[in-house]
Simulated assay, not measured.
Amino acid sequence: MNITRRRGAIAFFITLGVLLVGLAVTLDVGWIVVTSERTVWFIVLGILLFAALIAGVVLNTVFLVREINRNERQDTFLNAVTHELKTPIASIRLYLETLQRRPLDEPQRQEFYKVMLADSDRLLATVEQVLKAGPLGQRHRQQNRAALDLESLVTDCIAVTLQRYHLPPESIVLDPTPGDVRLFTLGIAEDLRTAVLNLLDNAVKYSPEGVHVRCSLAIESYTRVTLTIRDTGVGLAPDQFKRIFKRFYRVPERSTSKIKGTGLGLFLVRTIARQHGGTVTAESPGHNQGTTVTLTLPRANPTTQSAL
């Protein structure tokens, strides 16, 4: 249904553009003939109408280009999701068939179980990301919010990421909070956990030459808390700092073409941050110089509780 709607929109804009161009040419030629025997007011009126038609053509072109770009991003998303779903399923099936057909010793069986569990986690993460993109992107989350200890939440997310990618503990490090202060924010634990996991997931995936991620928590202007995640990966060009948070967007560079993903992770992070009254930003010194992502949230009192 969405594909049909997009095709209808593109057809509408193309038809409108053709009609506007035809009308503009007809008016321009006709007005030259008419105004040869008329007053200057007709000439001025003709110029204004012609300018309005040209503006309409320009706007139509802009909307058409946006629609085509959106369509391409969604096609890329569907291809990425298809790959992310098929690959772990095919892997799990292969190991199950091997277990069924061949007698294996216990160490091999345990290794197979380990790989299948990892593939199941990958499959589940993709499904959850797709399922969350719709509800989070369409409306405000009406759930109970509570004061959350950010250090505990980030520590838990780091442990999950290390286990998911089979990384040593020193790959992702959380620096001590200055002053040994416990920092809280008011929010939905499940959503904030999703945001932090997606940030860590991106930092790991875009560090193909080795994972070295540092996380830090700090107070900003006494009323806000910042979580900063720095990696030493492929980096970003300045024109990508805002685009990476758009739905379905993937960085169009050769160095990242082999990195798989749905294009939803950072979109979810931005959506969750906004729904919690916060922001998320990205910056990078340049290519292969790493990326720093900063998630900013309102600071809360440990005893704060809200029903909204």
Rank of each mutant, 00 (worst) to 15 (best):
T177P: 02
L153R: 00
P169Q: 01
P169D: 07
N144S: 14
R139Y: 06
L123P: 01
L123H: 10
L96P: 09
M116S: 04
Q108K: 05
R139C: 13
E97D: 11
V115F: 02
V181Y: 06
D180A: 13
V181R: 05
L117T: 14
Q138A: 15
R139W: 05
P168T: 02
V181E: 03
L174H: 01
P107H: 03
R182I: 08
G137D: 06
D119G: 01
D119M: 04
T177K: 01
F112T: 00
R141C: 07
T185Y: 00
Q100V: 03
T155G: 06
K114S: 09
V127S: 11
H166S: 13
H166T: 10
T161P: 03
R101K: 12
L117D: 12
P135R: 00
G134K: 09
R109I: 10
T161I: 05
E128G: 10
Y95F: 15
L104N: 10
T126P: 01
A118C: 05
V160E: 04
G179R: 01
G134F: 09
T98F: 02
L124I: 15
N144H: 14
L94C: 07
T98M: 11
T126W: 09
Y95L: 13
Q110H: 05
A125Y: 08
D149G: 03
Q129A: 14
L104F: 04
L131R: 12
E97R: 15
D180F: 02
Q163L: 13
R182D: 02
R141V: 15
G179W: 03
P176M: 12
T98R: 08
H140Y: 13
R182C: 03
K114T: 06
L150Y: 00
E128A: 15
L96Q: 14
E170P: 14
G134D: 09
Q143P: 14
D149C: 05
P103T: 07
G134E: 13
L174S: 01
L117P: 01
L124A: 15
V127L: 15
V130L: 10
M116C: 07
F112V: 03
Q110N: 09
E128D: 15
Q163P: 08
D175T: 04
L186P: 00
R141G: 10
A118P: 00
R109H: 08
S171M: 13
V173H: 09
Q100T: 11
